[in-house]
Design a protein around this nucleic acid. Structure first.
Lengths: 160, 160
DNA sequence: GCCGATAATGAAAATGGTTTTCATTATCAA
DNA sequence: TTGATAATGAAAACCATTTTCATTATCGGC
């Protein structure tokens, strides 16, 4: 179990290095986007990133948010998060392919390792003849913190 | 392993019964949409459904497609399929919650049972303190048919 | 079988998220 | 410092979905 917060502070610098060493320029707009995303423990959509980033860099354009997201995803620094209603958001990736668990109350996200999935994949693959190349696993629920405040406080719930 | 094609013919009638017994009217527009979706072995998006359905019922409006999808989903007759690029499509559901395996070549979809997932959910839940309420699992790969034609024919591949 | 309340329809307009275009600006290697 | 060009922000374009609205079709009651 790896919490997203791990070494969140170094991440900003690390990402900028990645961008530079991939031949991309280091601009203020990109830094503003990276600052927001690298520090967040929940997935954010383009508009949210835009709003947060403009607090520190008001001249930022929404287009630059999309363009930066594109680059960061291409470099595997962030990954897409899919929501049941179809909306997309982005969260800092840890390393390689990981699975997400998302709290419906505070929206905090945690990664978990999915090694235990291998037997299922093999089983399904054998039975169906499918060659499985990629998988997608997300859990939705209530994190321990929100669980606790719910028991002590008996309500407090966000929209579904 | 349950193939989507199971009792596909009866499905159209069954869905119309469901609609009626839920107090919805039986209209030509709805039948046109249902005909398409009930017979498809792959997930279709609203525009695809619209195009296919108009072959048999040219006066159909796109809005009615969306409205019918809404009702069918509400009655748990179809389920949403999420694609890596974010687009949404719909496929006939079998019963209750099932997981999907989607062929990247022919787009055919097959359901598989996910009972084997329970230990993983319990494990993650115990370690993280998360109460897991819902999960989402999709596999992407190549189905056996497309696997075969690929080996015999060595190319033939759709866009990623 | 007809009637009438109203659910459902299709066309057009509105909306909202994302992408494209383009002239201007900023970055960074030489 | 300079110059090629990557990156920017604003505005327009796009595209899927939703809303609005006047018209039409369904189906229970007569």
């Amino acid at each position: 179990m790896v919490n997203v917060s791990t070494s969140r502070e170094k991440r900003t610098l690390n990402w900028m290095d990645c961008l530079r060493s991939s031949g991309y320029r280091l601009t203020e707009a990109r830094q503003a986007v990276i600052d927001v995303l690298a520090k967040s423990d929940r997935a954010l959509n383009a508009t949210e990133i835009f709003d947060f980033a403009r607090e520190g860099y008001p001249s930022l354009g929404l287009v630059s948010v999309y363009r930066t997201l594109e680059k960061l995803e291409e470099l595997n620094l962030i990954q897409k998060v899919h929501h049941p209603d179809g909306c997309q958001s982005y969260i800092a990736g840890f390393t390689g392919h990981q699975h997400l668990m998302i709290c419906r109350v505070c929206e905090q996200a945690e990664f978990f390792e999915g090694d235990d999935l291998t037997p299922l994949i093999e089983h399904v693959s054998r039975e169906s003849g499918f060659t499985i190349q990629e998988h997608w696993l997300q859990f939705f629920g209530i994190c321990s913190e929100c669980n606790n405040s719910a028991t002590s406080n008996n309500l407090r719930k966000k929209s579904s």
